[in-house]
Simulated assay, not measured.
Amino acid sequence: METPFDKTAVETLDLLEARLRRIEYAVSGQVDEATPADDNTPAAQRLADLEHALHQLASKSRVVQDLLRLHARYPDLFQSIGADELPTTLDTESILSIILASASSYPSTASRLTSILDVPVPPAELSAQLIALVPRIARLEALQAAQNTEIAALRERSAALIQRWYTVNILGAGDSWAELEGRVEQVEQKVRRATLAKQLDADLV
Rank of each mutant, 00 (worst) to 15 (best):
E156V: 10
K60G: 09
F5I: 02
V184R: 15
T88M: 04
L113M: 08
A103E: 13
A145E: 10
N148A: 12
R73M: 09
L13M: 08
I162S: 09
A53S: 11
E93S: 02
S176V: 00
T8I: 10
R19C: 09
L140F: 06
R22K: 04
A83Q: 07
T35G: 03
L100R: 08
V184P: 05
V63Y: 15
V119E: 15
R112S: 13
S108D: 14
L117G: 09
L13R: 02
L70K: 05
S97Q: 10
L50P: 08
T3C: 02
Y74E: 12
R136E: 15
E185C: 03
D76G: 03
I131K: 15
L96T: 01
D118Y: 07
P36Q: 03
A152Y: 03
I137Q: 10
T35D: 14
L196E: 11
S28M: 11
Q163T: 12
D201I: 00
Q30W: 05
A142K: 05
S176Y: 02
R69C: 04
G29H: 06
S59I: 00
Y25A: 11
L67G: 02
E51H: 08
R21I: 03
A103Y: 06
E141H: 02
E125F: 05
Q189G: 15
I81D: 03
V168E: 15
D6Y: 07
P120A: 12
K7M: 13
D203T: 00
K190E: 15
R62P: 11
V121Q: 12
L113I: 05
R136A: 13
V187E: 15
S102E: 14
I99D: 13
R112E: 14
K60A: 12
G172L: 01
S108V: 10
A138H: 04
A9W: 04
L70Q: 12
Y74S: 09
Q65R: 12
L126R: 14
T167S: 14
V63K: 11
T41I: 07
D91T: 00
A145N: 06
V119N: 07
R46C: 06
Q65D: 11
F5E: 12
T89V: 05
A18R: 03
R183Q: 15
L180A: 14
G82W: 01
N40G: 07
V63H: 15
P42I: 00
Q129R: 14
I170G: 01
R46I: 08
A43R: 03
Q186R: 15
S108L: 09
I151K: 08
S97C: 05
R164I: 02
D91A: 04
A37G: 06
Y74K: 04
D118L: 08
R157A: 13
L77K: 00
L154E: 11
M1D: 06
L113F: 04
Q30C: 06
L16D: 11
E141M: 01
H55I: 07
A132Y: 01
A101Y: 08
A110P: 00
A124F: 04
A178K: 01
A53Y: 04
P120R: 08
P42E: 10
S105C: 01
V191Q: 14
A9F: 01
R62E: 14
A173C: 00
D49L: 07
L200S: 01
A152N: 10
K190Y: 12
E156D: 14
A101Q: 11
L161H: 02
L96Y: 06
V134T: 12
A58V: 05
E179F: 01
I116H: 05
E24V: 00
V31E: 13
